[in-house]
Computed example of a mutant assay.
Amino acid sequence: MSSDIVVIGSLNMDMVVQVDRRPERGETLLGSHFFMSPGGKGANQAYAAGKLGASVALIGRVGDDMFADQLLANLQQAGVDTSLIGRVSDEATGVAFITVDKDGDNSIVVAPGANSRVTPDFIRQHEETISKAKMVMVQLEVPLESIMEAVTLADKHGVPVILDPAPAGPLPDELLAKVKYIVPNENEISQLTGTLVSDIRTAKTASVELLRKGVDTVFSKLGGQGVVVTNANRAFNIPGFQVKVVDTTAAGDAFAGALATALVGGKDLWAAAQFANAVGALAVTRSGAQSAMPDLAETEQFIKESTQE
Rank of each mutant, 00 (worst) to 15 (best):
D155N: 09
A150T: 03
V151Y: 06
P160H: 09
Y181Q: 11
A166S: 11
V179L: 11
V151G: 02
T152D: 05
E149S: 11
K156Y: 02
V161K: 00
I147T: 03
A168P: 05
K156A: 03
D164G: 04
L163F: 08
V151Q: 02
L171C: 10
G158H: 02
P165S: 03
M148T: 00
D155M: 00
L175E: 09
D173G: 14
D164L: 05
L175F: 14
K156V: 06
V179T: 12
A154E: 05
V179I: 13
A168N: 08
A154W: 02
D155R: 04
I147A: 05
K178Q: 12
M148N: 01
D155T: 08
L175C: 12
V159C: 05
A154Q: 08
V161L: 00
K178I: 14
I147L: 05
P167W: 05
A150L: 04
D155E: 03
P165E: 04
D155P: 00
I147F: 03
A166E: 07
P160A: 10
V159E: 03
V151S: 04
A177P: 11
E149N: 07
P170M: 11
E174T: 14
A168D: 04
A168E: 08
G158A: 01
A150C: 06
V151N: 03
D173E: 11
V161W: 00
I162K: 07
A177F: 12
L153A: 08
A150P: 03
D173V: 13
T152A: 10
P172F: 07
L153G: 08
L171N: 05
E174Y: 14
V159Y: 03
P172A: 04
L163S: 02
L163R: 00
I162D: 04
P165T: 06
P172N: 04
A166H: 07
K180T: 12
V179P: 12
T152P: 06
V159T: 06
E149V: 15
V179E: 05
V151M: 05
M148K: 04
A166G: 12
M148G: 02
E174P: 13
E174A: 15
V151K: 02
T152R: 09
L175Y: 09
P167V: 11
A166V: 11
L171I: 13
G158P: 03
K156H: 06
P172C: 07
D173P: 15
G169V: 11
I182S: 13
K156W: 02
E174D: 14
E174G: 14
L171M: 13
I182L: 15
V159M: 03
A150W: 01
I162G: 07
D155W: 02
K180S: 13
Y181R: 10
A166M: 07
E149D: 11
D155Y: 03
A166Q: 06
E149I: 10
P170R: 13
D173T: 13
G169E: 09
V179A: 09
H157Q: 08
A168G: 08
D155S: 10
H157A: 07
P167D: 06
M148D: 01
V159H: 02
I162L: 07
A150H: 01
A177L: 09
A166Y: 02
K180R: 12
V179R: 05
L163H: 01
L176V: 15
Y181F: 15
M148S: 04
E149M: 10
A166N: 08
Y181M: 09
P172V: 02
A154S: 13
E149G: 12
K180V: 13
G169A: 10
